[in-house]
Design a protein around this nucleic acid. Structure first.
Lengths: 111, 111
DNA sequence: CTACTGTCTAGACGATCATCGAAACAAGCA
DNA sequence: TGCTTGTTTCGATGATCGTCTAGACAGTAG
């Protein structure tokens, strides 16, 4: 999994290199679940780090399931985390979001 | 699955509504495969409709598998197609790409 | 009509995924 | 030391996914 902040040519401009497609698909897969998409949204839109304990209550799934989804987001490079005392805090990695937005971007909004 | 060209508030700005998260995850799932990502890239970057016969040769999978992936992209609203005579042509739906790009967009590139 | 090409559908198989309950681990407190 | 709470890991289960082969369907040309 490559890790450049600005990946490459957008998908709309030139055919994707196979390696980039593999990387991109892996990141999109991490977002291909409503729970994970909402988790990322909650963490990113907060603008600061978020405690896991503030996340679990907002979903109808068990705490281990939330932990699993957070791990998927983390392994995709979309969020990172740190334990401080009892609680674990998550924050988002904006470079990765930008990477994806660039991949999808249409170069010029045809007016 | 809602179909607005400009979906909503970006994921980075406010927590995603559950319904939007479900819709978004479904579309991301369609991109969560390297073959489909490259297919979409080939179709979109061409700038015009593309014959299936020009796509199958670029992958190491069978023609039915390509057809399956194209169907997934079509059912996600990312591409559309039409048969004309012997061949079937696919083109991309830019509104859907914009929808996703908006969902991921960071409102202001913090300078 | 028959033969042929291009594309899609149907059914099956192994692999991966989402979810859960149970248990382990980490940290604070008595 | 033990008890409690928050979080992650483990192992299992049912569902979904990617791919294949075989066959069906659409259209062209004899």
């Amino acid at each position: 999994m490559s890790n450049q902040p600005n990946c490459c040519t957008p998908l709309t401009v030139a055919p994707l290199d196979v390696a980039v497609a593999v990387d991109g698909a892996a990141v999109f897969k991490a977002l291909a679940d409503p729970v994970r998409l909402r988790l990322l949204s909650l963490i990113t839109s907060a603008g600061h780090e978020v405690c896991v304990c503030d996340l679990t209550g907002q979903f109808d799934v068990s705490a281990p399931t939330i932990s699993h989804h957070l791990r998927v987001l983390r392994e995709a490079g979309l969020v990172d985390c740190e334990r401080r005392g009892t609680w674990v805090y998550y924050w988002s990695v904006p470079e990765k979001l930008d990477w994806m937005a660039t991949l999808l971007a249409t170069p010029v909004p045809v007016g």
